[in-house]
Design a protein around this nucleic acid. Structure first.
Lengths: 223, 223
DNA sequence: AGAATTACGTCAATGGTGTTGACGTAAGGT
DNA sequence: ACCTTACGTCAACACCATTGACGTAATTCT
Protein backbone atom coordinates (compact mmCIF):
# COMPACT_ATOMS: atom_id res chain seq x y z
CA UNK A 1 0.00 0.00 0.00
CA UNK A 2 2.07 2.90 -1.29
CA UNK A 3 1.82 6.48 -0.21
CA UNK A 4 0.45 8.00 -3.40
CA UNK A 5 -2.61 6.67 -5.09
CA UNK A 6 -4.30 7.26 -8.33
CA UNK A 7 -7.94 7.47 -7.47
CA UNK A 8 -10.50 6.57 -10.04
CA UNK A 9 -14.14 7.42 -9.29
CA UNK A 10 -16.41 4.40 -8.91
CA UNK A 11 -19.39 3.72 -11.10
CA UNK A 12 -21.52 5.90 -8.84
CA UNK A 13 -18.94 8.68 -8.80
CA UNK A 14 -17.50 8.27 -5.30
CA UNK A 15 -13.74 8.57 -4.88
CA UNK A 16 -12.46 6.00 -2.40
CA UNK A 17 -9.80 6.35 0.30
CA UNK A 18 -8.93 4.63 3.55
CA UNK A 19 -10.62 7.37 5.56
CA UNK A 20 -13.77 7.33 3.48
CA UNK A 21 -14.06 3.57 3.95
CA UNK A 22 -13.42 3.70 7.70
CA UNK A 23 -15.95 6.44 8.26
CA UNK A 24 -18.52 4.63 6.19
CA UNK A 25 -17.89 1.41 8.13
CA UNK A 26 -18.32 3.21 11.46
CA UNK A 27 -21.52 4.81 10.21
CA UNK A 28 -22.78 1.43 9.06
CA UNK A 29 -22.14 -0.16 12.45
CA UNK A 30 -23.67 2.75 14.30
CA UNK A 31 -26.79 2.95 12.21
CA UNK A 32 -27.68 -0.57 11.15
CA UNK A 33 -26.19 -2.58 13.99
CA UNK A 34 -22.98 -4.49 14.38
CA UNK A 35 -23.89 -7.35 12.09
CA UNK A 36 -24.36 -4.97 9.17
CA UNK A 37 -20.63 -4.70 8.63
CA UNK A 38 -20.03 -7.12 5.80
CA UNK A 39 -17.86 -6.51 2.78
CA UNK A 40 -20.85 -6.66 0.48
CA UNK A 41 -22.94 -4.19 2.45
CA UNK A 42 -19.93 -1.92 2.85
CA UNK A 43 -19.50 -1.91 -0.91
CA UNK A 44 -23.18 -1.12 -1.37
CA UNK A 45 -23.01 1.74 1.15
CA UNK A 46 -19.89 3.14 -0.49
CA UNK A 47 -21.37 2.83 -3.96
CA UNK A 48 -18.65 0.57 -5.30
CA UNK A 49 -17.92 -3.06 -5.92
CA UNK A 50 -17.44 -4.89 -2.59
CA UNK A 51 -14.01 -6.13 -3.54
CA UNK A 52 -12.71 -2.61 -4.01
CA UNK A 53 -12.18 -2.56 -0.25
CA UNK A 54 -9.40 -5.10 -0.71
CA UNK A 55 -7.38 -2.45 -2.55
CA UNK A 56 -7.10 -0.56 0.75
CA UNK A 57 -7.19 -3.25 3.45
CA UNK A 58 -5.73 -6.73 3.44
CA UNK A 59 -8.95 -8.21 4.81
CA UNK A 60 -11.76 -7.80 7.31
CA UNK A 61 -9.35 -8.02 10.20
CA UNK A 62 -7.10 -5.29 8.92
CA UNK A 63 -10.11 -3.08 8.42
CA UNK A 64 -11.36 -3.72 11.95
CA UNK A 65 -8.00 -2.77 13.45
CA UNK A 66 -7.98 0.44 11.46
CA UNK A 67 -11.44 1.22 12.78
CA UNK A 68 -10.25 0.45 16.31
CA UNK A 69 -7.51 3.01 15.98
CA UNK A 70 -10.03 5.54 14.83
CA UNK A 71 -12.14 4.68 17.89
CA UNK A 72 -9.36 5.30 20.40
CA UNK A 73 -8.85 8.77 19.07
CA UNK A 74 -12.57 9.42 19.30
CA UNK A 75 -12.66 8.22 22.92
CA UNK A 76 -9.91 10.53 24.14
CA UNK A 77 -10.96 13.56 22.13
CA UNK A 78 -11.78 16.46 24.42
CA UNK A 79 -10.89 14.73 27.68
CA UNK A 80 -9.24 16.94 30.29
CA UNK A 81 -8.39 15.63 33.77
CA UNK A 82 -9.54 17.84 36.63
CA UNK A 83 -7.95 18.57 40.05
CA UNK A 84 -9.68 15.61 41.75
CA UNK A 85 -7.86 12.42 40.76
CA UNK A 86 -10.73 10.11 41.76
CA UNK A 87 -13.25 12.02 39.68
CA UNK A 88 -10.79 12.21 36.80
CA UNK A 89 -10.13 8.48 36.81
CA UNK A 90 -13.84 7.89 37.07
CA UNK A 91 -14.52 9.94 33.98
CA UNK A 92 -11.67 8.27 32.12
CA UNK A 93 -13.19 4.88 32.91
CA UNK A 94 -16.64 5.98 31.79
CA UNK A 95 -15.22 7.39 28.58
CA UNK A 96 -13.40 4.19 27.71
CA UNK A 97 -16.56 2.25 28.36
CA UNK A 98 -18.66 4.62 26.24
CA UNK A 99 -16.23 4.32 23.38
CA UNK A 100 -16.41 0.54 23.53
CA UNK A 101 -20.19 0.51 23.71
CA UNK A 102 -20.53 2.88 20.79
CA UNK A 103 -18.82 0.37 18.52
CA UNK A 104 -19.21 -2.96 20.29
CA UNK A 105 -18.12 -5.24 17.50
CA UNK A 106 -14.91 -3.32 17.03
CA UNK A 107 -14.36 -3.34 20.78
CA UNK A 108 -14.65 -7.11 21.11
CA UNK A 109 -11.93 -7.56 18.51
CA UNK A 110 -9.71 -4.79 19.86
CA UNK A 111 -9.91 -6.14 23.41
CA UNK A 112 -8.36 -9.43 22.36
CA UNK A 113 -5.54 -7.76 20.44
CA UNK A 114 -4.19 -4.68 22.13
CA UNK A 115 -3.34 -2.03 19.55
CA UNK A 116 -0.45 0.01 20.92
CA UNK A 117 -0.38 3.37 19.25
CA UNK A 118 -0.17 7.00 20.11
CA UNK A 119 -3.59 7.40 21.64
CA UNK A 120 -3.07 4.50 23.99
CA UNK A 121 0.18 6.05 25.19
CA UNK A 122 -1.78 9.18 26.00
CA UNK A 123 -4.25 7.15 28.03
CA UNK A 124 -1.50 5.41 30.03
CA UNK A 125 0.28 8.67 30.64
CA UNK A 126 -2.94 10.21 31.86
CA UNK A 127 -3.85 7.40 34.23
CA UNK A 128 -0.38 6.99 35.72
CA UNK A 129 0.09 10.71 36.22
CA UNK A 130 -3.24 10.89 38.03
CA UNK A 131 -2.20 8.12 40.41
CA UNK A 132 1.18 9.76 40.99
CA UNK A 133 -0.51 13.07 41.73
CA UNK A 134 -2.72 11.22 44.22
CA UNK A 135 0.38 10.41 46.22
CA UNK A 136 1.07 6.81 45.26
CA UNK A 137 4.67 5.68 44.99
CA UNK A 138 5.88 4.93 41.44
CA UNK A 139 5.64 1.18 42.15
CA UNK A 140 2.10 1.45 43.50
CA UNK A 141 1.06 3.84 40.77
CA UNK A 142 2.13 1.31 38.12
CA UNK A 143 0.49 -1.54 39.98
CA UNK A 144 -2.83 0.19 40.58
CA UNK A 145 -2.95 1.67 37.13
CA UNK A 146 -2.79 -1.89 35.89
CA UNK A 147 -5.60 -2.86 38.26
CA UNK A 148 -7.68 0.11 37.19
CA UNK A 149 -7.27 -0.11 33.42
CA UNK A 150 -7.71 -3.88 33.32
CA UNK A 151 -10.91 -3.66 35.30
CA UNK A 152 -12.26 -0.92 33.06
CA UNK A 153 -11.23 -2.69 29.86
CA UNK A 154 -12.48 -6.06 31.05
CA UNK A 155 -15.92 -4.75 31.95
CA UNK A 156 -16.11 -2.61 28.84
CA UNK A 157 -15.21 -5.58 26.66
CA UNK A 158 -17.73 -7.78 28.41
CA UNK A 159 -20.49 -5.24 27.95
CA UNK A 160 -19.41 -4.68 24.38
CA UNK A 161 -19.54 -8.35 23.51
CA UNK A 162 -22.98 -8.46 25.04
CA UNK A 163 -24.04 -5.44 23.02
CA UNK A 164 -22.55 -7.00 19.91
CA UNK A 165 -24.97 -9.91 20.08
CA UNK A 166 -27.78 -10.07 17.57
CA UNK A 167 -30.72 -8.07 18.95
CA UNK A 168 -33.05 -11.05 19.26
CA UNK A 169 -30.37 -13.06 21.07
CA UNK A 170 -29.69 -10.20 23.47
CA UNK A 171 -33.37 -9.74 24.22
CA UNK A 172 -33.74 -13.45 24.86
CA UNK A 173 -30.86 -13.27 27.34
CA UNK A 174 -32.46 -10.29 29.07
CA UNK A 175 -35.79 -12.04 29.27
CA UNK A 176 -34.08 -15.09 30.76
CA UNK A 177 -33.42 -13.21 33.99
CA UNK A 178 -37.00 -12.05 34.17
CA UNK A 179 -38.71 -15.31 33.28
CA UNK A 180 -36.44 -18.30 33.71
CA UNK A 181 -35.03 -17.26 37.04
CA UNK A 182 -38.42 -16.21 38.35
CA UNK A 183 -39.78 -19.70 37.74
CA UNK A 184 -37.06 -21.64 39.51
CA UNK A 185 -38.59 -23.63 42.41
CA UNK A 186 -37.72 -22.10 45.78
CA UNK A 187 -37.26 -25.58 47.25
CA UNK A 188 -34.30 -26.32 45.00
CA UNK A 189 -32.94 -22.76 44.97
CA UNK A 190 -33.79 -21.09 48.29
CA UNK A 191 -31.34 -18.19 47.96
CA UNK A 192 -32.61 -17.32 44.49
CA UNK A 193 -36.13 -17.54 45.89
CA UNK A 194 -35.31 -15.12 48.70
CA UNK A 195 -33.82 -12.63 46.28
CA UNK A 196 -36.34 -13.10 43.49
CA UNK A 197 -38.05 -9.68 43.51
CA UNK A 198 -34.70 -7.98 43.05
CA UNK A 199 -33.37 -10.23 40.32
CA UNK A 200 -34.87 -8.76 37.18
CA UNK A 201 -34.20 -5.10 37.80
CA UNK A 202 -30.50 -5.28 38.54
CA UNK A 203 -29.36 -8.32 36.64
CA UNK A 204 -29.95 -7.26 33.08
CA UNK A 205 -28.56 -3.80 33.86
CA UNK A 206 -24.88 -3.03 34.15
CA UNK A 207 -22.83 -3.03 37.35
CA UNK A 208 -20.10 -0.99 35.69
CA UNK A 209 -20.51 2.15 37.76
CA UNK A 210 -20.88 0.14 40.96
CA UNK A 211 -17.64 -1.65 40.17
CA UNK A 212 -15.88 1.57 39.28
CA UNK A 213 -16.94 3.27 42.49
CA UNK A 214 -16.04 0.29 44.67
CA UNK A 215 -12.62 0.13 43.08
CA UNK A 216 -11.88 3.84 43.36
CA UNK A 217 -13.11 3.81 46.93
CA UNK A 218 -10.61 1.06 47.78
CA UNK A 219 -7.81 2.90 45.97
CA UNK A 220 -8.56 6.15 47.79
CA UNK A 221 -8.30 4.34 51.07
CA UNK A 222 -4.91 2.87 50.20
CA UNK A 223 -3.19 6.05 49.09
CA UNK B 1 -37.13 -32.04 22.53
CA UNK B 2 -38.73 -34.85 24.53
CA UNK B 3 -37.25 -36.68 27.45
CA UNK B 4 -36.65 -40.14 25.94
CA UNK B 5 -35.01 -40.63 22.62
CA UNK B 6 -34.78 -43.40 20.16
CA UNK B 7 -31.20 -43.37 19.07
CA UNK B 8 -30.28 -44.65 15.69
CA UNK B 9 -26.59 -45.13 14.96
CA UNK B 10 -25.21 -42.87 12.24
CA UNK B 11 -23.69 -44.12 9.04
CA UNK B 12 -20.32 -44.41 10.78
CA UNK B 13 -21.83 -46.20 13.76
CA UNK B 14 -21.75 -43.41 16.35
CA UNK B 15 -24.80 -43.01 18.59
CA UNK B 16 -25.52 -39.32 19.11
CA UNK B 17 -26.67 -37.53 22.24
CA UNK B 18 -26.52 -34.00 23.59
CA UNK B 19 -23.53 -34.85 25.75
CA UNK B 20 -21.61 -36.52 22.95
CA UNK B 21 -22.13 -33.46 20.76
CA UNK B 22 -21.15 -30.99 23.49
CA UNK B 23 -17.98 -32.87 24.38
CA UNK B 24 -17.01 -33.08 20.75
CA UNK B 25 -17.64 -29.36 20.31
CA UNK B 26 -15.50 -28.49 23.33
CA UNK B 27 -12.72 -30.69 22.00
CA UNK B 28 -13.03 -29.04 18.60
CA UNK B 29 -12.83 -25.51 20.03
CA UNK B 30 -9.99 -26.38 22.36
CA UNK B 31 -7.93 -27.93 19.64
CA UNK B 32 -8.66 -25.87 16.54
CA UNK B 33 -10.01 -22.57 17.90
CA UNK B 34 -13.46 -21.08 18.31
CA UNK B 35 -13.79 -20.36 14.61
CA UNK B 36 -13.46 -24.08 13.92
CA UNK B 37 -16.85 -24.68 15.51
CA UNK B 38 -19.10 -24.89 12.49
CA UNK B 39 -22.00 -27.23 11.98
CA UNK B 40 -20.24 -28.89 9.08
CA UNK B 41 -17.00 -29.53 10.91
CA UNK B 42 -18.90 -30.69 13.96
CA UNK B 43 -20.76 -33.19 11.81
CA UNK B 44 -17.50 -34.37 10.29
CA UNK B 45 -15.89 -34.76 13.71
CA UNK B 46 -18.91 -36.64 15.02
CA UNK B 47 -19.13 -38.87 11.98
CA UNK B 48 -22.64 -37.87 11.01
CA UNK B 49 -24.49 -35.55 8.69
CA UNK B 50 -24.03 -31.93 9.81
CA UNK B 51 -27.76 -31.31 10.06
CA UNK B 52 -28.20 -34.11 12.58
CA UNK B 53 -27.09 -31.56 15.19
CA UNK B 54 -30.37 -29.74 14.64
CA UNK B 55 -32.21 -32.73 16.12
CA UNK B 56 -30.59 -31.89 19.45
CA UNK B 57 -30.09 -28.11 19.40
CA UNK B 58 -32.30 -25.45 17.89
CA UNK B 59 -29.35 -23.70 16.30
CA UNK B 60 -25.78 -22.54 16.76
CA UNK B 61 -26.70 -20.26 19.64
CA UNK B 62 -28.47 -22.98 21.57
CA UNK B 63 -25.44 -25.22 21.19
CA UNK B 64 -23.15 -22.44 22.36
CA UNK B 65 -25.17 -21.94 25.53
CA UNK B 66 -25.02 -25.67 26.24
CA UNK B 67 -21.24 -25.59 25.87
CA UNK B 68 -21.00 -22.62 28.22
CA UNK B 69 -23.08 -24.43 30.80
CA UNK B 70 -20.87 -27.49 30.47
CA UNK B 71 -17.94 -25.23 31.31
CA UNK B 72 -19.66 -23.88 34.40
CA UNK B 73 -20.38 -27.41 35.56
CA UNK B 74 -16.75 -28.35 35.19
CA UNK B 75 -15.76 -25.26 37.16
CA UNK B 76 -18.16 -26.01 40.00
CA UNK B 77 -17.30 -29.70 40.29
CA UNK B 78 -15.99 -30.43 43.78
CA UNK B 79 -16.46 -26.92 45.10
CA UNK B 80 -17.75 -26.62 48.69
CA UNK B 81 -18.24 -23.23 50.33
CA UNK B 82 -16.70 -22.85 53.80
CA UNK B 83 -17.87 -20.91 56.85
CA UNK B 84 -16.09 -17.69 55.82
CA UNK B 85 -18.10 -16.02 53.07
CA UNK B 86 -15.21 -13.81 51.91
CA UNK B 87 -12.85 -16.77 51.55
CA UNK B 88 -15.60 -18.78 49.85
CA UNK B 89 -16.35 -16.08 47.30
CA UNK B 90 -12.63 -15.66 46.74
CA UNK B 91 -12.22 -19.33 45.93
CA UNK B 92 -15.29 -19.26 43.72
CA UNK B 93 -13.77 -16.38 41.79
CA UNK B 94 -10.44 -18.15 41.41
CA UNK B 95 -12.20 -21.30 40.25
CA UNK B 96 -14.19 -19.47 37.59
CA UNK B 97 -11.01 -17.90 36.36
CA UNK B 98 -9.19 -21.24 36.27
CA UNK B 99 -12.04 -22.82 34.34
CA UNK B 100 -11.94 -20.05 31.78
CA UNK B 101 -8.19 -20.28 31.39
CA UNK B 102 -8.45 -24.04 30.92
CA UNK B 103 -10.73 -23.52 27.90
CA UNK B 104 -9.80 -20.02 26.79
CA UNK B 105 -11.34 -20.31 23.38
CA UNK B 106 -14.70 -21.42 24.74
CA UNK B 107 -14.54 -18.74 27.40
CA UNK B 108 -14.06 -15.84 24.99
CA UNK B 109 -17.31 -16.72 23.27
CA UNK B 110 -19.34 -17.76 26.28
CA UNK B 111 -18.44 -15.27 29.03
CA UNK B 112 -21.04 -12.67 28.17
CA UNK B 113 -23.94 -15.07 27.77
CA UNK B 114 -26.74 -16.22 30.06
CA UNK B 115 -26.95 -19.98 29.65
CA UNK B 116 -30.32 -20.48 31.34
CA UNK B 117 -29.26 -23.99 32.27
CA UNK B 118 -28.81 -26.08 35.36
CA UNK B 119 -25.18 -25.39 36.15
CA UNK B 120 -25.65 -21.65 35.89
CA UNK B 121 -28.55 -21.90 38.33
CA UNK B 122 -26.27 -23.70 40.75
CA UNK B 123 -23.61 -20.99 40.49
CA UNK B 124 -26.09 -18.17 41.07
CA UNK B 125 -27.63 -20.00 44.00
CA UNK B 126 -24.19 -20.45 45.54
CA UNK B 127 -23.08 -16.86 45.16
CA UNK B 128 -26.32 -15.30 46.34
CA UNK B 129 -26.59 -17.59 49.36
CA UNK B 130 -23.06 -16.64 50.40
CA UNK B 131 -23.91 -12.95 50.24
CA UNK B 132 -27.15 -13.52 52.16
CA UNK B 133 -25.26 -15.45 54.84
CA UNK B 134 -22.88 -12.51 55.06
CA UNK B 135 -25.79 -10.38 56.21
CA UNK B 136 -26.68 -8.45 53.06
CA UNK B 137 -30.30 -7.61 52.43
CA UNK B 138 -31.93 -9.51 49.54
CA UNK B 139 -31.76 -6.39 47.37
CA UNK B 140 -28.06 -5.83 48.13
CA UNK B 141 -27.26 -9.53 47.77
CA UNK B 142 -28.71 -9.55 44.25
CA UNK B 143 -26.95 -6.31 43.39
CA UNK B 144 -23.55 -7.27 44.71
CA UNK B 145 -23.73 -10.76 43.29
CA UNK B 146 -24.05 -9.09 39.94
CA UNK B 147 -21.08 -6.85 40.71
CA UNK B 148 -19.01 -9.82 41.87
CA UNK B 149 -19.75 -12.27 39.08
CA UNK B 150 -19.43 -9.67 36.33
CA UNK B 151 -16.05 -8.57 37.62
CA UNK B 152 -14.81 -12.14 37.83
CA UNK B 153 -16.20 -13.05 34.41
CA UNK B 154 -14.91 -9.89 32.79
CA UNK B 155 -11.35 -10.37 34.00
CA UNK B 156 -11.43 -14.08 33.29
CA UNK B 157 -12.65 -13.45 29.75
CA UNK B 158 -9.98 -10.83 29.16
CA UNK B 159 -7.24 -13.15 30.37
CA UNK B 160 -8.74 -16.01 28.39
CA UNK B 161 -8.81 -14.06 25.15
CA UNK B 162 -5.18 -13.16 25.73
CA UNK B 163 -4.32 -16.80 26.43
CA UNK B 164 -6.20 -17.82 23.30
CA UNK B 165 -3.85 -15.88 21.06
CA UNK B 166 -1.36 -17.85 19.04
CA UNK B 167 1.90 -18.16 21.04
CA UNK B 168 4.00 -16.26 18.54
CA UNK B 169 1.46 -13.44 18.44
CA UNK B 170 1.38 -13.25 22.22
CA UNK B 171 5.15 -13.20 22.53
CA UNK B 172 5.46 -10.59 19.81
CA UNK B 173 2.86 -8.57 21.69
CA UNK B 174 4.84 -8.74 24.92
CA UNK B 175 8.06 -7.78 23.21
CA UNK B 176 6.42 -4.86 21.42
CA UNK B 177 5.00 -3.71 24.73
CA UNK B 178 8.36 -3.71 26.51
CA UNK B 179 10.25 -2.07 23.67
CA UNK B 180 7.62 0.47 22.79
CA UNK B 181 7.35 1.78 26.30
CA UNK B 182 11.10 1.81 26.82
CA UNK B 183 11.48 4.06 23.83
CA UNK B 184 8.82 6.58 24.73
CA UNK B 185 10.53 9.95 25.29
CA UNK B 186 10.29 11.10 28.90
CA UNK B 187 9.75 14.64 27.75
CA UNK B 188 6.45 13.74 26.10
CA UNK B 189 5.44 11.17 28.71
CA UNK B 190 6.85 12.19 32.09
CA UNK B 191 4.60 9.98 34.20
CA UNK B 192 5.45 6.89 32.17
CA UNK B 193 9.09 7.84 32.52
CA UNK B 194 8.84 8.11 36.29
CA UNK B 195 7.16 4.72 36.55
CA UNK B 196 9.10 2.91 33.86
CA UNK B 197 11.05 0.45 36.03
CA UNK B 198 7.81 -0.80 37.59
CA UNK B 199 5.75 -0.87 34.41
CA UNK B 200 7.16 -3.98 32.80
CA UNK B 201 6.81 -6.19 35.83
CA UNK B 202 3.23 -5.23 36.43
CA UNK B 203 2.17 -5.62 32.84
CA UNK B 204 3.35 -9.18 32.39
CA UNK B 205 1.54 -10.39 35.51
CA UNK B 206 -2.18 -10.46 36.14
CA UNK B 207 -4.01 -8.06 38.44
CA UNK B 208 -6.81 -10.59 38.92
CA UNK B 209 -6.10 -11.40 42.56
CA UNK B 210 -5.50 -7.74 43.38
CA UNK B 211 -8.86 -6.88 41.86
CA UNK B 212 -10.60 -9.72 43.65
CA UNK B 213 -9.17 -8.70 47.01
CA UNK B 214 -9.96 -5.03 46.53
CA UNK B 215 -13.53 -5.89 45.60
CA UNK B 216 -14.12 -8.29 48.48
CA UNK B 217 -12.56 -5.79 50.87
CA UNK B 218 -15.06 -3.16 49.73
CA UNK B 219 -17.95 -5.58 50.02
CA UNK B 220 -16.93 -6.66 53.52
CA UNK B 221 -16.93 -3.02 54.58
CA UNK B 222 -20.44 -2.47 53.22
CA UNK B 223 -22.17 -5.43 54.83
C1' DA C 1 -45.55 -61.46 16.87
C1' DG C 2 -46.78 -58.18 13.82
C1' DA C 3 -48.44 -53.61 12.82
C1' DA C 4 -48.33 -48.73 13.61
C1' DT C 5 -46.04 -44.71 14.75
C1' DT C 6 -42.60 -41.57 14.88
C1' DA C 7 -37.73 -40.17 16.03
C1' DC C 8 -34.05 -38.96 13.66
C1' DG C 9 -30.24 -39.55 10.23
C1' DT C 10 -29.81 -38.16 5.54
C1' DC C 11 -30.03 -35.45 1.36
C1' DA C 12 -30.83 -31.43 -1.55
C1' DA C 13 -31.31 -26.75 -1.89
C1' DT C 14 -31.30 -21.63 -0.57
C1' DG C 15 -29.17 -17.49 0.26
C1' DG C 16 -25.82 -15.58 2.93
C1' DT C 17 -20.48 -14.87 3.83
C1' DG C 18 -15.09 -13.60 2.88
C1' DT C 19 -11.65 -13.84 -0.50
C1' DT C 20 -9.02 -14.50 -5.01
C1' DG C 21 -7.55 -13.87 -9.83
C1' DA C 22 -8.21 -12.10 -14.33
C1' DC C 23 -9.36 -8.10 -16.95
C1' DG C 24 -9.60 -3.62 -18.88
C1' DT C 25 -9.91 1.23 -18.40
C1' DA C 26 -8.75 5.61 -17.12
C1' DA C 27 -5.48 8.45 -14.56
C1' DG C 28 -0.66 10.49 -14.08
C1' DG C 29 4.00 11.03 -15.01
C1' DT C 30 6.98 11.74 -18.77
C1' DA D 1 0.54 11.85 -26.65
C1' DC D 2 2.27 8.20 -25.05
C1' DC D 3 2.98 4.29 -21.55
C1' DT D 4 2.52 2.38 -17.35
C1' DT D 5 -0.09 0.76 -13.76
C1' DA D 6 -3.49 1.64 -9.98
C1' DC D 7 -7.65 0.16 -9.06
C1' DG D 8 -12.67 -0.61 -9.95
C1' DT D 9 -15.15 -4.41 -11.79
C1' DC D 10 -16.64 -9.06 -12.64
C1' DA D 11 -17.01 -14.01 -12.11
C1' DA D 12 -16.09 -17.72 -9.42
C1' DC D 13 -14.90 -20.43 -5.30
C1' DA D 14 -15.32 -22.29 -0.89
C1' DC D 15 -17.48 -21.95 3.00
C1' DC D 16 -21.35 -20.88 6.25
C1' DA D 17 -26.33 -21.74 8.88
C1' DT D 18 -30.67 -23.32 8.23
C1' DT D 19 -34.97 -25.55 6.18
C1' DG D 20 -38.03 -29.12 4.33
C1' DA D 21 -38.81 -33.49 2.34
C1' DC D 22 -37.92 -38.29 2.74
C1' DG D 23 -37.17 -42.93 4.25
C1' DT D 24 -35.88 -46.11 7.60
C1' DA D 25 -35.15 -48.22 11.75
C1' DA D 26 -36.50 -48.37 16.58
C1' DT D 27 -39.99 -48.34 19.89
C1' DT D 28 -44.72 -49.05 21.25
C1' DC D 29 -49.19 -50.84 20.97
C1' DT D 30 -52.41 -54.47 20.24
Amino acid sequence: MGERRRRRPTKSGVVLSEDVIIECAVRLIGHHGAEALTVRRLGAALGCDPTAVYRYFRGTDDLLLAIADFLIGETLAGYRPGPDWVASLRELGLRVRDGHLRHPRVATVAAARVTRRHNEFRAVELGVSLLLSAGFSPADAARYYHVFIDTVLAHAALEASYAALAPEVREADDRAWEETYRRLPATDYPAIGAVRPHLGAGMSGSPFEDVLDLLLESLARRV
